[in-house]
Design a protein around this nucleic acid. Sequence first.
DNA 1: AGTGCTATGATAGACGGGTTCTTTTGTCTA
DNA 2: TAGACAAAAGAACCCGTCTATCATAGCACT
Lengths: 343, 343
Amino acid sequence: MARRPSNDTGTRPVSMADVARAAGVSQQTVSRVANGLPNVNEQTRQRVQAAMQELGFRPSYAGRSLRDGRYHSVGLCINDVTKFGNLSMIDGIASAAREHNCAITLVEMSKTEEFSLAEATRRMAALPVDGIIIGMSRMAPDFETFDPLPGIGTVIVTMYAHPRVTTVDSDHYGCSLLLMDHLFELGHEQIRYIGGPSFSVDEQFRRAGWQDALERKHIEPVEPLEGDWSANSGYEAGRYLAEHDRTMTAIYAANDQMANGAIAALRDSGLRVPEDVSVVGVDDSLDDFVAHNELTTVRFDLHQRGREVFEHAVPEAGTAGKTVAIRIPGQLIIRHSTAIPRA
Amino acid sequence: MARRPSNDTGTRPVSMADVARAAGVSQQTVSRVANGLPNVNEQTRQRVQAAMQELGFRPSYAGRSLRDGRYHSVGLCINDVTKFGNLSMIDGIASAAREHNCAITLVEMSKTEEFSLAEATRRMAALPVDGIIIGMSRMAPDFETFDPLPGIGTVIVTMYAHPRVTTVDSDHYGCSLLLMDHLFELGHEQIRYIGGPSFSVDEQFRRAGWQDALERKHIEPVEPLEGDWSANSGYEAGRYLAEHDRTMTAIYAANDQMANGAIAALRDSGLRVPEDVSVVGVDDSLDDFVAHNELTTVRFDLHQRGREVFEHAVPEAGTAGKTVAIRIPGQLIIRHSTAIPRA
DNA sequence: AGTGCTATGATAGACGGGTTCTTTTGTCTA
DNA sequence: TAGACAAAAGAACCCGTCTATCATAGCACT
């Protein structure tokens, strides 16, 4: 009648006690063998190992975790797995986790809707995790008021700083400054902006960087356009700009995909890139998809970000947790979509 | 001296007993409150909940799992997270997992090297998983001899069938037939092939489909080319074909990225697509990256695959596990990169 | 006073691995 | 033959949650 068969008939996993019974020894002798401890007779050891083999013994994760209070896994909570930003997050964290011999426990919240940090931590905390990582690609409704759970490391991946939680992100503000400086040095001043959807945190900071860079040079920023990160939306925006703005000399698209679309639109409108208009993007994400990628862009070190995120979420003993805000700078990659503006 | 402090000073997680002590009730009552069982006085309930709140109680995953023998997580073992095939796997499985209120425990093996199934299951079995999913994107050295661990559902995502393990995959052979039939109907016969790296299982089946389709029509397959899935490799191959093969009327590239590169190469060589040469790809992966995507391709239902994979790895009680091989057909998407061949 | 119900406590055990303490067994030496 | 000592193995208990009993108290309704 037991929910799980406690004798040898059913599907209950094989425990040390089962092995011990089969080998005719006590459970702790099995433990000694399993953990390679000394003081076991060689014959006994072999007998126990044979029993393990035969029964297909594997140590229970639950039992072990209960005992030593560690899970060897880090929780990652994001919304849409397929978005470039989130994908690169998984990738970077997977590397770092592997270095620490650690797994990732992944939870995808809604694909499209925002979620609260409280809800996210509540769900993650119920899972086997030694630390919690939350990708906040759009502003959470409770960001200001959020308090991390005590007793478990928490890191939010976002550009916004938080007084009580460590935040880590690629520098989505600084990347704009890098690109704008590059364009300024070439001599551009009329630089239009094609952004992602305005709810995106990355968008908010990339755009702020564009705007601040212009204002620092006392150039009035002209109406930014809003896309949806896709090449098609970049194309639409590029087409619009080609037809309505004859003074612009450069376009800053907030990601490479839109930049690629914008370039196609400019060329379809009879403008040359980079001779007539320079175009820059962000992410360095085109290589696999576009032959002879010529786009000037910013590349982020996603593995470094992954490492920082991981190590703050699962601090080594002693490193424990002041709240910090880490911004990892990108690297300007100059290709051939930028040039000195026409006279 | 205890490794974990057993009193109230240290960092030991808060247990039910702690809550009970704080609320002045028995551990039993805390359990009743935690699990929403009846027969608890409203005042008592509130007192207990207040204590939980204040102490930051969260039920121990280890304790609970140990008790009820379930982890509510499925293990996923793949090599390179960022490859399209693997990414789409994470995406599809994440959806299915969420529907079952389940997390994914992700382990990235080596980025580049193949791994044995025995090694993969060994690692996954040591984690909190109710089922094991292994993405075999290249042939494992021990595929033939592999035996799944008893007592835990195992699914391999691959086109190869296995006598003792359920395998699930998108139909990487059938997609070729769909595309070839489409080209045959238009009147093409000289159809060249640009494949991925030959160690790739997907490549092996896509290529076999191309070859069989031709042979069924008694057309001799002409030397397939090998790329690396990237647009640049597709460009190189396309350039080569444009210069060396004046009789071909169509190119089948084994993924969209290479197809996109091939189209660029053909156009750079003065050939029109689709008027002079038709081009098809697989995956329907260009939309975000290329404006006005015109590539005829095959789209796979990755969420259906994810669901099949998940449900065979973590069977509902009763559904338990005959070994099957499931191939999920793709869908032909006809755009404007294919046309009737020139006369 | 008896019956039935609700609210709670006390106690114990199952789950599986690991640690600590203790006991048994075996061998060597005085 | 007794004593010393080490190796081998066992017994007990802990980790935290949940459930299964049982016991007890309080209250209300007959």
